[in-house]
Design a protein around this nucleic acid. Structure first.
Length: 869
RNA sequence: GCCGAAAUGGCGGAAUUGGCAGACGCGCUGGACUCAAAAUCCAGUUCCCUUUAAAGGAGUGUCGGUUCGACUCCGACUUUCGGCACCA
């Protein structure tokens, strides 16, 4: 029988709720901290033990900081749009909003049961029209923006239109937007365009645009998936195929450089920064144009090895490349068509699976600008349309893939970098050796190192107007539309004349229509297409007919800015007041799963940067410090899963041991960021500790322990106390909760040995314990006669460094680095005395007997090491 | 294949600046209390040799190096986990 945690925890949870103990308001006179948990998706399964891990960590930090007088914003809310609720609706015809609300209620109850100190007045829910009104509003802000590479930031599209009206696109490098300069126009040209033509031009500039692209279509789900999402669903057994479709895209690629650069200053796990870096995939190289023999057209390629251009013996286009048809000769047409069809059907995943090189000759030839020779043009699916220009110059001698391909199809291999072996036997990709066989009448890079050859040959490209230095990124634009019902409607109307317009800001939120059935529409459109009343619109003035966009936003949209809404959750004139942001931003600590390393964390940074450029947010980065909680495995050391039957339900743990025990155990298991297995015995261990605390303070009949008096503590116990305060004070900000708890256990063990206990110390210890076990702490605090919450009436105790130190220390005596004796000496005993004390140890004498001391190492308060021969 | 992280008793882990390896907890062993059990309390618990103690030896994934001294620093390797994967 332990203490009655059920009553105590319920009592204090009700107290906090009634008294709004955790309510937070701006107070410029106080230091602030914004401590955030990753937005939970309220699934039907309820909370699992992984949730309380991160939540408890931030809660302890929050409570600790509040006890230190810091004004802490610590909110929670629900990322509630998403496919599971919609799939449930397809099966049952129960509206997703109904299941969503039920799930949220479960999550809220469970989270409150854990005693987390959220300010519940700031709770947000992405499916609430008052919330997604602003998601739509931000979407429109992004849509109505363009990225100006001249100033490296987003600007309102109206400023671009103003510029076009004045001077056309003369001051803009159009190649960065529409890929060529062919469409360029002057001010008059712009004015002469119809509205539809103008809109088409602007599409290439907007940060949100529609494109016909091959996407990952999942028939069973009735929706497309982002590249990043494909694996997840394929793993679950769904089939994902490639299909060209009209899709909404967000131009995240415009921010490649800034997302990369700014990541360096963030206090994030290095592995996460590294993953984002790899995802962005910056590489420096050159773009070069290869003329097509017998044509005025050119093939543009990206290469990181322009130094090897003299070795380019053939070219490869991606099967989807727009020039494929025009370079293909009649003789090769059939073969090329067949190959194209095959590879377009294959998903990128399938293409990657099979590393065996395949391809076909188009019959066409290009001219290598360095050698002047004609080289064959092939198509092959090892060249991807989505990277670079979807075309490569193949240098088989110095590239693994090109070498394999050349070997298979008998294409010439020419050594242009001095290689340690015959390049016909194997490729050589290293950059250490100088160039060879690389000269023509205008330029020679023979004998030059990689760096010098790179500079010289790119200089030659530039002088000839056929190429230039180029930085390329792996990052691709974000596929933003989903053919779903349960998501934010995209506030765009398509008119019968082909033009598009935004839903007026004043009409937001554009609410989801009520549907009775949620099955896919049968076409590739979302179920919204069925809601005729909602979809079809007429412009009141002109009578022009239009159709609403039926795609909805992906689940990531709502979580891209939720942390801003928490700052100002009820504002109905703006998504977040800028003055409030100035106080609260940026987020000082963000804790959540590592599975969001690239997706959520990259998308949110992107939106934040756009809003920053447009002047709606005050910082360039949202999350300054990020940590991931480690996965909690089942008791059998395997990932928790229903099929393995090793899932632990927090409800059960709380029922049996209480929330304080659950919190304490999750923190005691090991380092926050590491993966670690659950242990029911371990929960019992910390539960025993809480009971020891209870009994230390209260007698059997719940009277204050009579040993607690106004007397003085012993020197030794006073030291343990100060050591405990120090350890916990230092460990909490460093998120080392396991060692902080260990020290508190030592304190309680020592306290139990005392013949009398200082009331002052014992009261202070409750404060030290309170961030970890807030319910128990509140209860004990009240037993000392306090009438207000510990978190309102107490402040974090200070420690005296000098009192943490022992005045007698144990010193180790070593001979040749091996411990031969230990002895006690007063603190700061001089070295000479330490040596004498060591020499006096009987066992030292044994080991020193007959030997000569050649060296003495004496470390004050620690050790004496005598080196002998 | 490439990038990143990790490896310490029977188990989770501690030792953050090179200075007593194994804090704290679990488990286990013995004891106290009890008619008995639970709960609680006390003692012990890295391994080997030893009747015990003293004393000794080995020991932080493997091999080697630096150092008076290495879990900690350096080099090579093994294994596990996470990510990326024809990215030109």
């Amino acid at each position: 029988m332990g203490y009655n945690f059920t009553d105590i925890e319920q009592k204090w949870q009700e107290y906090w709720e009634r008294n709004k103990t955790n309510k937070t308001v701006e107070d410029p006179s106080r230091k602030k901290l914004y401590i955030l948990d990753m937005f939970p998706y309220p699934s039907g399964a309820g909370l699992h033990v992984g949730h309380p891990e991160g939540y408890t960590a931030t809660d302890i930090f929050t409570r600790f900081q509040r006890l230190n007088g810091v004004n802490v914003l610590h909110p929670i809310g629900w990322d509630a749009f998403g496919l599971p609720a919609e799939r449930y609706a397809m099966q049952t015809n129960i509206h997703p909003s109904v299941t969503t609300e039920e799930n949220i209620n479960t999550f809220r109850r469970q989270i409150k049961m854990l005693g987390l100190s959220y300010d519940w007045d700031r709770e947000v829910n992405t499916t609430d029209p008052e919330y997604y009104r602003w998601t739509q509003w931000i979407f429109l802000k992004i849509y109505n923006s363009w990225f100006d590479f001249r100033v490296n930031k987003a600007r309102p599209i109206s400023e671009l239109i103003a510029e076009f009206e004045k001077q056309g696109c003369s001051k803009i490098d159009c190649t960065l937007y529409c890929g060529n300069n062919d469409c360029c126009f002057n001010a008059n040209g712009w004015r002469m365009m119809s509205e539809l033509e103008q809109q088409k031009v602007l599409i290439d500039f907007r940060l949100v645009y529609i494109a016909e692209i091959p996407v990952n279509w999942c028939e069973a789900l009735g929706t497309v998936l982002a590249n990043e999402e494909v694996d997840e669903w394929v793993e679950k057994g769904y089939t994902v195929e490639r299909k060209p479709m009209r899709q909404w895209m967000m131009r995240i690629t415009a921010y490649s450089e800034r997302l990369l650069e700014d990541a360096a200053q963030l206090d994030w796990p290095s592995s996460t920064v590294e993953m984002q870096k790899n995802w962005i995939g910056r590489s420096e190289g050159a773009e070069v144009d290869f003329a097509i023999a017998g044509s005025s057209e050119k093939i543009r390629v990206f290469t990181t090895r322009p130094d090897t251009i003299f070795g380019a013996t053939y070219m490869v286009l991606a099967p989807e490349h727009p020039l494929v048809d025009s370079v293909t000769t009649n003789a090769q047409k059939k073969e090329v068509e067949t190959y194209k069809k095959q590879s377009i059907l294959k998903s990128e995943l399938d293409r990657g699976m099979d590393k065996d090189k395949t391809g076909v000759f188009t019959g066409g030839f290009a001219v290598n600008p360095a050698t002047g020779k004609e080289i064959p043009i092939w198509i092959a699916d090892y060249v991807l349309m989505g990277y670079g220009f979807g075309a490569i110059m193949a240098v088989p001698a110095h590239d693994e893939r090109d070498w394999e391909f050349a070997k298979k199809f008998n294409l010439p291999i020419i050594e242009v970098v001095k290689s340690p072996h015959d390049v016909n036997e194997n490729f050589y990709v290293a950059k250490e050796e100088p160039c060879v066989n690389s000269s023509n009448s205008e330029v020679s890079i023979n004998g030059l190192s990689y760096a010098d050859a790179f500079t010289k040959i790119v200089g030659w490209f530039e002088s000839k107007g056929i190429g230039r230095k180029k930085i390329n990124y792996k990052l691709r634009d974000w596929l933003f539309s989903r053919q779903r019902y349960w998501g934010e409607p995209i506030p765009i109307i398509h008119w019968e004349d082909g033009t598009m317009s935004c839903v007026d800001e004043k009409e937001l939120p554009l609410k989801l229509p009520n549907l009775a059935k949620f099955q896919p529409s049968g076409t590739t459109e979302s179920p919204l297409a069925i809601a005729a009343d909602w979809v079809n619109v007429v412009e009141p003035k002109s009578g022009k007919k239009g159709r609403r966009e039926t795609n909805t936003m992906p689940q990531w949209a709502g979580s891209c800015w939720y942390y801003l809404r928490y700052i100002d959750p009820k504002n109905d004139t703006i998504f977040c007041d800028i003055e409030k942001q100035k106080y609260w931003l940026p987020i000082d600590l963000y804790i959540g799963g590592a599975e969001h390393a690239v997706l959520h964390l990259m998308y949110a940074r992107f939106w934040h940067k756009v809003l920053y450029d447009l002047g709606y947010v005050t910082t360039s980065e949202p999350f300054m410090k990020l940590r991931h909680q480690g996965t909690i495995l089942g008791e059998n050391n395997k990932k928790m899963s229903k099929s393995l039957g090793n899932v632990v339900n927090p409800d059960d743990v709380v029922n049996e041991y209480g929330a304080d025990a659950l919190r304490l155990f999750e923190m005691f298991m090991g380092p926050l960021e590491e993966m670690k297995p659950w242990s029911t015995k371990g929960v019992e261990g910390v539960y025993r500790f809480l009971n020891r605390v209870w009994r230390l303070y209260l007698t059997e009949d719940e009277k204050l322990n009579p040993l607690i008096t106004d007397g003085q503590p012993t020197q030794d116990f006073l030291r343990v106390y100060h050591q405990t305060v120090k350890k916990v004070t230092e460990d909490i900000p460093a998120l080392r909760f396991n060692t902080a708890i260990a020290k508190m256990m030592i304190f309680v063990n020592e306290a139990n040995k005392q013949e009398s206990l200082s009331k002052r110390l014992m009261e202070q210890f409750i404060i030290v314990l309170s961030p970890f076990a807030p319910h128990l702490a509140e209860e004990l605090w009240s037993r000392f006669g306090h009438t207000e919450s510990i978190f309102k009436s107490a402040s974090w105790p200070s420690f005296d460094e000098s009192l943490t130190i022992m005045n007698t220390v144990e010193v180790v005596a070593q001979v040749n680095g091996k411990i031969r004796a230990k002895f006690l000496a007063p603190l700061d005993t001089p070295e000479v005395t330490l040596k004498d004390l060591a020499l006096a140890e009987p066992n030292m004498k044994v080991h020193l007997d007959g030997k000569q001391i050649v060296k003495e190492i004496i470390v004050k308060n620690k050790l004496v090491n005598l080196v002998v021969k």
